[in-house]
Design a protein around this nucleic acid. Structure first.
Length: 517
DNA sequence: CCTATCCCTACTGGCCCGTG
DNA sequence: CACGGGCCAGTAGGGATAGG
């Protein structure tokens, strides 16, 4: 197994900055060694032309202190290869002599874009009015503007961001109508059944489960859970609690997770009241769809496509670390300011930043978006990501994850919500609940959880289960992080006693420490 | 010696809560 | 009411170390 994994990591890679990938990709080079001048920092190493596809450890080996001056490479192949550390597949990265030469001509890489953190609700008092346009200004930005002596006007704020900035308990109540009666006593019975299922020894696994344990690409091939039966049962229980029926792709999920709301907007299928748990999501989605009817005509450089992969990718980036409302408004604001991606690409980064400011982390996200557009334009001659539709899933993962700011979760969301692939994104809620349910080893990190769950969860239930776990992780007082649900609960948790971890949590005897789920 | 991996921290804007 | 600290979540990067 180890040899197998190692072999996969040696998948050849090509720099994203190769100006003519179609030419270079035809080359077949034998493994060799490339001399890299010693340097004292990562930035300097990159400035020397070392591609950022090189692993951090390998790049660090270039530092003087370690007296490591060589970087190995493998070969080009005639296919679209991953171009940086592939966190999803675990494949690895190398650097090539040609890459260094090309990069030297390009110069140092763009400034480091720091990571992101999640934001929560927006305080209503931070919404201010200027003339007829209500504008949203964060406290931090107010402080910054005050420090800079910049007047508060429409040039430095995001318009049209004055509604539903705060998702309070009344909103939640709207979302979860008619849920209480679904939480009846029969839940207790099924809970007992599942308790017994959860502790069933591996020798009693179904044939399907055993097969999965043997053949999956999981980092834990011997860890058989979750069994397919579990996935279906949890889906059914959470569906009863948080929403009715199956959340087929393209229909609404009973969640207001920004990624899912954005995803809904990308699908042309009808969104009906019966498919959602509340009127809020439906009205917002329909309203957005109406806006989209107009915007789609000029939205992208691919006029024949209603929603593009690039829309989805940028939308998902904008949804990182912010609320659904803010991310959606940031996306709409961006489209309003720059109807096409070409315009975004050509725009002053500050203008782009201003356009998405209402989504939070505007500077970071603007740089990342522009960097993506710039990379695509440089490599393809036009700003369009539709070519990934012809790729297989692994190739798409490699293609998208090479962009800075696009991680495994973002790629998985694009794959699942937009490209309708059988992916199982693992966000913080899915990660936490997976551990609580005993579906992954306690030591599993998020990436391993993603790999394991993606291989274990039956394809037909991935979409539903993801949506429901996210919803449940937000709403259930027992299962929410820190025991603090983001909305009013829909009812008693149907997963009590599902696993020893869940039982411990529900008993209240365990004081959760920092970092624990 | 080189690479892979684990573990940890930084970064970011905003919310929540306690304190003065 | 203002202020500060803790916390949130996804990504990037670096130190240390294991393994081939």
């Amino acid at each position: 197994m180890a040899a197998c994994r190692r072999s996969s990591r040696l998948a050849p890679l090509v720099s994203q900055k190769l100006a003519a990938p179609c030419d270079v990709s035809k080359k077949l080079l034998l493994p060799t060694t490339v001399k890299v001048e010693p340097c004292v920092s990562l930035q300097e190493a990159r400035a020397q032309g070392v591609k950022d596809s090189l692993s951090s450890s390998s790049l660090r080996n270039c530092k003087i202190g370690r007296k490591k001056e060589t970087v190995s490479r493998t070969k080009f192949v005639d296919q679209a290869p991953p171009r940086k550390l592939d966190k999803i597949t675990g494949s690895f990265k190398v650097v090539k002599q040609e890459v260094c030469q090309v990069d030297k001509n390009i110069g140092p890489e763009p400034p480091h874009l720091p990571g992101l953190r999640q934001t929560r609700k927006v305080k209503s008092e931070d919404v201010e009015a200027t003339d007829d346009i209500k504008i949203y200004v964060s406290r931090a930005r107010k402080k910054k503007l005050k420090t800079e002596g910049t007047p508060l006007d429409g040039s430095n704020v995001c318009p049209g961001n004055n509604k539903e900035m705060k998702r309070d308990s009344s909103d939640a109540a709207t979302l979860v109508t008619a849920k209480e009666e679904t939480c009846s006593a029969d839940k207790v019975e099924t809970s007992k059944e599942i308790t017994s299922l959860a502790i069933v020894p591996s020798s009693n696994l179904s044939g399907q489960a055993v097969e999965l344990a043997v053949t999956s690409g999981s980092p834990y091939p011997d860890f058989a859970r979750p069994y397919p039966e579990e996935c279906y049962e949890v889906r059914n229980r959470l569906s009863q609690l948080h929403g009715t029926g199956s959340y087929a792709r393209g229909k609404s999920c009973p969640t207001i997770d920004p990624l899912q709301v954005l995803a809904l907007e990308y699908h042309s299928e009808e969104v009906t009241a019966a498919d959602t748990a509340g009127a809020l999501v439906v009205s917002e989605v329909e309203e957005q769809k109406r806006e989209d009817e107009h915007e789609d005509r000029t939205l992208t450089g691919c006029p024949s496509v209603r929603r593009t992969v690039l829309d989805s990718l940028v939308g998902t980036i904008l949804s990182q670390n912010t609320t659904d409302n803010n991310s959606r408004k940031a996306f709409a604001s961006l489209k309003q300011a720059f109807p096409t991606w070409e315009e975004v690409h050509a725009a002053d980064p500050k203008k782009v930043e201003d356009a998405i400011r209402c989504g939070g982390l505007a500077e970071t996200k603007a740089k990342r978006i522009i960097n993506i557009l710039d990379t695509i334009f440089t490599e393809r001659g036009s700003i369009c990501l539709e070519y990934v539709r012809s790729m297989n899933v692994d190739q798409i993962k490699a293609e998208l994850s090479r962009f800075k700011g696009v991680g495994p979760k973002t790629v998985a969301c694009v794959l699942m919500f937009h490209l309708e692939q059988n992916e199982f994104p693992v966000d913080t809620h899915v990660f936490r609940l997976s551990k609580m349910l005993g579906w992954v080893p306690a030591s599993a990190d998020r990436e391993k959880t993603y790999l394991h769950m993606n291989s274990r969860v039956p394809d037909e239930v991935k979409y539903d289960l993801h949506c429901l776990l996210v919803t449940h992780g937000k709403r259930c007082p027992r299962c929410a992080k820190g025991g603090r649900a983001q909305t009013a609960p829909d009812g008693p948790c149907p997963l009590i006693n599902w696993s020893p971890q869940m039982a411990l949590r529900s008993s209240g005897d365990v004081k959760l420490l920092k970092g624990e789920y």
